[in-house]
Design a binder for these strands. Sequence first.
DNA 1: CGAGAATCGTTGTATAGTGCAACAAATTCC
DNA 2: GGAATTTGTTGCACTATACAACGATTCTCG
Lengths: 140, 140
Amino acid sequence: MPGRETSIDTIQRELTAFARRARHKASQLHPDLSLVTYSILDLINERGGCRAADVASHFMLDKSTVSRQVGALEKLGLLRRETDPDDQRGQILRATEAGLTLLREANEQRRISFTARFTDWSDEDVARFAQYLARYGAEG
Amino acid sequence: MPGRETSIDTIQRELTAFARRARHKASQLHPDLSLVTYSILDLINERGGCRAADVASHFMLDKSTVSRQVGALEKLGLLRRETDPDDQRGQILRATEAGLTLLREANEQRRISFTARFTDWSDEDVARFAQYLARYGAEG
DNA sequence: CGAGAATCGTTGTATAGTGCAACAAATTCC
DNA sequence: GGAATTTGTTGCACTATACAACGATTCTCG
């Protein structure tokens, strides 16, 4: 077994390489939805509606960036904004039907692509890899 | 154990979330070296000198993007270009002393940050996680 | 050998994504 | 009730990126 330091270097390097390729991959997978818009829409959907500030903190983005992305998604008819009745400063973001449809398509494409990558992997290995990643993500 | 589909969804979502945060994290870690310049310099160093075309294909970037990034890194004195004697179309990119120093500092910062994230993990788990990531990266 | 194809890098142009600062409106906290 | 905080928007600047057209070099194969 390699040393802990070496393993951490590997993790670091592999994750970074993934991050650097993610934008390109996403645009290949679904040209209508960039990595940015896809991930925002997916978060909103997963949360069942959330505010722009939540999106900003989840992805570590400036609120102005999120504001513009949300504006673009709204203009495309993929989400709608409702003023939060409990706090009229904020808005609740929700995917529209069109947004959900596009998101489902994008997710399907992604699943196909990811699945292809794991054909050689046993169910156990896939499950363990997922576990490790979830654990890693949860600690951040 | 969760189903294969569920695990793949988890992998997909966690990796994407990581990618979306990577830029911000990198700029926090070492403000002098963005994720972009860091990863290019690191690749050049790891390969012991390589060409712009290699960088482009490794990170799935257009050659024009790489050309500009390399130009910027050269202007900063972090790498130098030598015409490849075996193929005068190409150039061999190498980190300068200044580049290596900065890269070492950045790697140190990263290692500290990543190490902190794994304090709860056993050596075995870290090693296995690294193995899975390397395997994943190798298949792409 | 030689002409056409391929490769490598540069530059012009356009666009997306991002952050910071200043702002307005609503809310919360003494 | 007034100060501080939160939420989102807008103006501005800059970075990262892609695509297309180009020049220089190398490769292919007839």
